[in-house]
Amino acid sequence: MKATIRKTRKLESLTFIFSFLLLVLFLFVFLTLSNMIFKQILDDFQGLINTVENRAVVSSIFLSLYAGFLATLIAFFLGAPAGYILARFDFPGKSLVESIIDVPVVVPHTVAGIALLTVFGSNGLIGGPLEAYIQFRDALPGIVVAMLFVSVPYMTNSAREGFKSVDPRLENAARSLGAPLWKAFLFVTLPLSARHILIGAIMTWARAISEFGAVVLIAYYPMIGPTLIYDRFLSYGMSASRPIAVLLILVTLSIFIVIRVLSAGWSIYDRD
C-alpha cells in the first residue's frame, strides 16, 4: 500500500498518519473476526465439528438465513416501489416521510423490539385483530417482522439512489416509443437500477441476519443464530457459544461472497 502512494506522489505526514489509522481500523475488524475463527479451528476443531452436527445449531442458523430471506423479500416489494416514488416525485412532507422511514436505523434495537411487541403482541394494534390467523409472539412471523423493521431502510434508500441514477429522459424515451409507465419501469428503469437494488438487498439481508435485540424481545423461540449464541453464552460460557458464532459467520460470509462473485458481471449504468 505504501508503495503505491509513493509512486503517485510524495508521502506527506497527513497521508502517513491517515494511512496508519486506516491500518488500525482494518486490523480492528479483521483481527477480531479472524482471530475468533482461527482460534476456534486451532484450539477446538472438534467443537466446531460437533456444532456442525448439532441439529439445534443447524436449524437456528437455517432459521436466521430463512427469516432474513423472507424479510428481504418483503423489503424488496415494499422498499423498491417506495424508493421509486421518493426518487421521482416531490410532494409536501417528503423530507418528513424520508426521515421517518430512516428512523429504524437509529433506534436502539431493544427499543424497536419493545415497540414491535406493543404493536404485534397479542393485544397490540395489529397483533390483536390478527391473533386468530397469525401469531407474532415467539413465532416465525415475529422474527420476520423484527428483521424487516430494522433492515428495510437499507433497501428503500438503496433503491431510491438506484432509481435516481436513471435519467428520467430514458423513461420518457421509452414512453414515446409506446411503452406505458409500467413497461418503461420494468424494461428500462428497473434493469438500470438492478445493481443498486441488489446491493440494497444484500445489505438488508445482512442487517436482518445480524439482528438480535429486536428479535429476542418479540420471539426468543424459535431461536435464531444470534439468540442461540447468547443463550449458550449465558448458560455454558464461551466454549459453548463460540463454535456457533464461527459457523454463523462462515456461512453468511460465504453466501455474500458467492452473491458478489455472481453479480460482478452486472454493469453499472450511472448517469455520470
Binding site: R169, L170, A173, A174, L192, S267, Y269
Partner: peptide, 10 residues
Amino acid sequence: VYQDYSLFPH
C-alpha cells in the same frame, strides 16, 4: 429524439 439521444445503455 432527445439532445443526448437517450439510448437504453443496457
